[in-house]
Design a protein around this nucleic acid. Structure first.
Length: 587
RNA sequence: UGGGAGAUCGUCUAACGGUAGGACAACGGACUCUGACUCCGUUUAUCUAGGUUCGAAUCCUAGUCUCCCAGCCA
């Protein structure tokens, strides 16, 4: 089975190269000799599970390194111990690997705490940073607004020695949480609010998952992130659009600290066995990939989990990597999706159907076929002996013989899909109806002679006759009928719990709360329907990570938590098949 | 009335002063023992108004709309 596919995204027709503005920059930098090779990184904060949006950044950063023969680090951005958890670190590593990538080096921002501290002292000595006693509320007032300049803190002009002494006492744990901060001395009247003396260090007497209680102070994002990039020799630091106006501060930190020319700041890393060749990284921003009918903010996903609105981070309806994996999406489908979407600076909302299409495209070529009935209706073939049993041979894939064949038991009593019979069929209905004919896949043409109902009028059985001249392999087998339906032997069918998933939200933009309703109000009550059906024996024995296509019904995967063959069969529906009949019938 | 960014088919994305192209979707057809897959074909776009130019999505001017920023979060 082939897992490869030609790129069908925004590629150059002639060369097949993926082209977007970032790859263009990379090509230029390589061609001009600015860089001999590139180095990227994926820097998640371990405060939640990774989601499909992160997959975009992962594909971009690791993909770039792969394409251009560079390196890509995985860096856990663990500068805020109050929000982070080692459990998330394991999930992140697992997800990156599952997506098909491996990092050149695993790093943590906390590996560099010693460097950040020395860098902060350097800034103080240069007169570029000061210790401020303002409370958070006071600081907000002094910051000004979007349209009004801020005012200098009364502590802004402390001398170097005083600042140094104070900062050292902060580090020694002499002050309470929030009592003081270290601030960059830039410009309180800057139009860009990020430049109004941003905080560099805060006091947080919280144990850190890596460094324990070694530090009572922790660096802020802008300071830690820029210097981490420089320390790791990152050449192209890719991030999303909302960091665009942080770039001046990013550059300020890198330039003022100037790690390249000050090895004393990081020499201890080298001595500790952490290879360090600082660079002057370039931050480049691209747009996030929003998808309709879903929410993608970490805060909202956390909320869904903690509020028990879903069944955990890996609920198959969640847009987390763990969720779509359990749902049955493949890594190849996710990669194809982001490749197809491309990379730009335009805000955009991608139709969920595009993702589903990628999943179908990948699964069509790699999933074995089986038959399974989700909503069973009994069919009795009256002209077959009631004890009739035969074994049919079915190909596992309609287009690829290398998938082999399987044995499918056939008896005089079978389950068919309830929706494949209509007593009063709509126009264009190709399936079974009273007096009508349909092909039983791999068997032959049957005719519905009698409809049996219960006292309530519900159809409980169809009594049909099989046209034996049309049996598979017989001369009459090529007789044309409009429809072919799937079935499962009633004597052999394995009872299965089947979970039919649908979009988690029933509005295209769950984030839109302008009507007073929140995303929680828009959860689709039918997003997880559990039904009980029957699958053919060869479906009950497939591997847990193997997806199958139940013909005409969609792609399914055994649930990684609850499937326990042979005693308990549980399938998740990955995605339906394209259904032009449903579309037509729905009109 | 601050700073930053972005507007191209329904959606996503190309173009780098020289034929507005591709992908997905949609629609029509062919094929079909999956109303799937596959194949063929068709429709649809440069935010607006001026200007420069032989020629403008691209350059200039003026507007319009959208997104981001006032955490000791990232």
């Amino acid at each position: 089975m082939s897992t490869d596919h030609l790129p069908t995204g925004p590629t150059d027709d002639a060369t097949g190269e993926i082209r977007d503005f970032i790859r263009q920059i990379v090509r230029e930098d390589l061609a001009s000799g600015k860089h001999a090779s590139i180095h990227t990184r994926f820097p998640p904060e371990p405060n939640g599970f990774l989601h499909i949006g992160h997959a975009k950044a992962i594909c971009l950063n690791f993909g770039l390194a792969q394409e251009f023969g560079g390196a890509c680090n995985l860096r856990l951005d663990d500068t805020n111990p109050a929000k982070e958890d080692p459990a998330f670190v394991d999930a992140i590593k697992h997800d990156v690997h599952w997506l098909g990538f491996d990092w050149s080096e695993l790093r943590h921002a906390s590996d560099y705490f010693g460097v950040f501290y020395l860098a902060a002292e350097k800034l103080i000595e240069q007169g570029d940073a000061y210790v401020d006693d303002l409370s958070p509320e006071e600081m907000r007032k002094f910051r000004g607004t979007l349209t009004e300049a801020g005012r200098n803190s009364p502590f802004r002009d402390r001398g170097v020695e005083e600042n140094l002494a104070l900062f050292r006492r902060m580090r020694a744990g002499e002050f309470a949480d929030g009592a003081k901060t270290l601030r960059a001395k830039i410009d309180m009247s800057a139009g860009n609010i990020n430049l109004r003396d941003p905080a560099l260090y805060r006091i947080r007497k919280v144990a850190h998952q890596n460094t324990g209680d070694a530090w009572p102070i922790y660096p802020m994002y802008d300071f830690a992130h820029s210097l981490s990039d420089a320390l790791e020799g990152i050449t192209h630091s890719l991030c999303t659009l909302e960091f665009e106006d942080h770039r001046p501060l990013y550059d300020w930190c890198v330039d003022k600290v100037d790690l390249v020319n000050h090895p004393t700041l990081w020499q201890h890393l080298v001595e500790a066995g952490i290879p360090t060749v600082p660079s002057k990284p370039r931050q480049i921003e691209f747009s996030r990939g929003n998808i309709n009918y879903t929410v993608m903010s970490k805060r909202k996903l956390l909320n869904l989990v903690q509020g028990n609105l879903v069944d955990g981070w890996d609920d198959p309806r969640m847009p987390t990597i763990a969720g779509v994996r359990r749902r049955g999406f493949t890594a190849a489908a996710l990669r194809l999706f982001w490749e197809r979407i491309g990379v730009s600076k335009q805000n955009s909302v991608i139709d969920l159907g595009v993702l589903e299409g990628c999943v179908r495209e990948d699964l069509d070529s790699r999933a074995e076929r089986r038959m399974g009935v989700v909503d069973p209706l009994k069919v009795t073939l009256t002209n077959l002996d009631a004890s009739h049993v035969e074994t049919l041979t079915f190909p596992n894939h309609p287009k690829d013989e290398s998938f082999g064949t399987r044995q499918v038991p056939f008896t005089a009593s079978v389950w068919i899909e309830r929706e494949d019979f209509e007593e009063v069929p709509p126009k264009g209905f190709h399936r079974l109806k009273p007096e009508g004919e349909v092909r039983l896949r791999g068997v032959g043409i049957i005719r519905c002679d009698e409809v049996v109902k219960d006292a309530a009028g519900l159809v409980v059985e169809l009594r049909c006759s099989l046209d034996k001249d049309t049996r598979h392999g017989m001369p009459g087998a090529d007789r044309k009928v409009k429809g072919t339906i799937h079935w499962v032997s009633a004597h052999h069918g394995v009872p299965a719990e089947i979970r039919l998933y649908d979009r988690l939200f029933n509005v295209a933009d769950p984030d839109d709360d302008s009507d007073g309703k929140t995303y929680e109000d828009h959860i689709n009550p039918d997003s997880a329907r559990v039904v009980h059906g029957y699958v053919e024996p060869a479906a009950a024995t497939i591997a847990v990570d193997q997806r199958v296509q139940f013909e005409r019904m969609g792609y399914f995967v055994p649930d990684s938590h609850d499937h326990a063959a042979p005693s308990r069969i549980v399938f998740n529906r990955v995605v339906t098949l394209r259904d032009s009949w449903a579309k037509q019938a729905g009109k």
